[in-house]
Design a protein around this nucleic acid. Structure first.
Lengths: 292, 292
DNA sequence: TAAAAATACTCCATAGGTATTTTAT
DNA sequence: ATAAAATACCTATGGAGTATTTTTA
């Protein structure tokens, strides 16, 4: 049996007329009669009661027609889905994200993806350090990483998405909040709150290198896992923190942000994916990401 | 596209080897390669990544394989269902039944049908008079009727299923319950409870003809719609009733049944269906009915 | 270099066309 | 008498076979 038989049967069953059905199928009537008979012979079931004056479905034919339509639709749907998957418009996508973009860029990206790629099932893993994201990429835990430099990995492909101003997060009423901008030098005596360090957090490295350039070693009083914790501790007056501008999107009360006078004064946000396994879905996602 | 493409794709996708798949399909390898390429070209999607050393499914291919298997299974299922419908082993069947068999034969029949024709969806309309069943047959409300003679209808086909002893239903302690059997003559002064008459109930006709043959007119005190009501009224001492033996299966307390001495002493139970529209499902049902 | 997929070509089975017959109203 | 399905027969597309080449691990 072939789909041809089903397509022909559907036409005859819907037209209830071999001549018109043949016309609709752009074939002559005799081969249509033959194919229908072939189908019935193969099934061993009469699907149509026909005289020269009337064609009608048997009970078995009524059921078979419904199933035939469902099958033909399923064949079409299978093709469309395969195309969508090949184009990256359908499937699973899990995105990793550093803490400083988890509450600003990431939600906007997810919203845009849902809108522009409705067939894609988007998963999210926020508050991941850059090294953790590289590992997650390699083991397939995430398909796309959003992280900050410096990162080195030959098997990963990077793309700069945006550059974020470095800010100093101060408790409300802190002496330094009176000035428009804050110089790194002015932080010589400050207590710092950072993400846990030793190469696990990029921002920790930024803090150390900026202070070292200014000729002092930062006094780190608290190390935290999550950005939300970091900002909350600042609000509680336990210290200050250097953060990329989007962190302010968290909107924790009691924190004042001031631009940091430093060189460099900005830090990039990168999108990364594995160099091999260039799945079309990550390509589509990067397209959407660039539009934001 | 044809089912051939799906069958071939399934084989290759499951074997992940064109040579073995071709063997499994009993064709040579080159035409298999051609058909797969044809499928991919038609879809515009690469389903398999292949080198001379390794064949593997693309993400689109993985999805397409699942759908392919579902489609091929659906094609098989459609054929099987059509066959079952043609054999009367699948479909809808509604059975009408007179009151006196509604509580004995009918439940047994339904149980047997569920067992022997599990694909058949059995519906039931009990407590129907013979004329009502004939009408219901004609309008397609029921497919099979269980009724008692006399019935005349040229468009309906009858088959005698069984013969039931006529009984007299008496309130417990009724004088006549002391004898083993009851003669019609002894009922000359009895109050009768019957189904509503005037050709609507066969048993009503039986009562009248038996009494007329014995030379008296029965005193009918109550006419009821349902057999259960009839028996309940007997139990309440409001009168006696002539019923076919299976009515006793109702098991209402306070009623004594005695064989009736009459000519005839039995009444047939018939199965009936429309003479045209000989659906296979009613044929199957009659087979089951005969086994009971 | 060896295993396996792709290519090149050939052949024939059968889908589809044309002409005609049968059938039911 | 006529419309429409079935039958008979013919044609040619394309599915499948054989032989060979290409590719990559």
């Amino acid at each position: 049996m072939e789909l041809r038989h089903l397509r022909y049967f559907r036409a005859v069953a819907e037209e209830l007329h071999f001549g018109r059905a043949a016309e609709r199928l752009h074939i002559a009537q005799p081969p249509l009669s033959q194919q229908i008979r072939q189908l019935e012979d193969e099934l061993g079931v009469r699907l149509l009661n026909r005289s020269t004056r009337r064609v009608e479905l048997t009970p078995a034919g009524i059921d078979y027609l419904q199933r035939t339509i469902a099958i033909l639709d399923a064949v079409d749907a299978a093709g469309r889905h395969a195309q969508q998957i090949a184009e990256g418009r359908r499937g699973q996508l899990t995105i990793g994200c550093v803490g400083s973009a988890t509450y600003s860029l990431l939600p906007r990206l997810v919203r845009a993806l849902r809108e522009q790629l409705p067939g894609v099932d988007v998963g999210v893993r926020g508050e991941m350090s850059a090294p953790a994201q590289l590992t997650a990429l390699r083991v397939g835990e995430i398909d796309l990483a959003l992280l900050r430099p410096p990162v080195e990995a030959a098997d990963v492909e990077f793309e700069t998405i945006r550059s974020d101003r470095l800010m100093i997060a101060l408790p409300d009423g802190h002496p330094l909040s009176s000035s428009e901008t804050v110089d790194v030098d002015e932080l010589r005596d400050a207590d710092f709150i950072t993400h846990v360090g030793h190469g696990r957090s990029v921002m920790n490295g930024v803090l150390v290198s900026l202070c070292t350039a200014a000729g002092f070693v930062p006094r780190i009083r608290h190390e935290v896992e999550e950005t939300s914790t970091l900002v909350t501790l600042v609000a509680a007056g336990l210290g200050v923190a250097i953060v990329p501008e989007p962190t302010s999107a968290l909107g924790v009360a009691g924190v004042t942000y001031r631009p940091l006078d430093a060189e460099p004064a900005e830090i990039d946000l990168l999108a990364a994916r594995l160099r091999d396994r260039h799945s079309p879905i990550t390509t589509q996602a990067l397209d959407v990401l660039r539009q934001i």
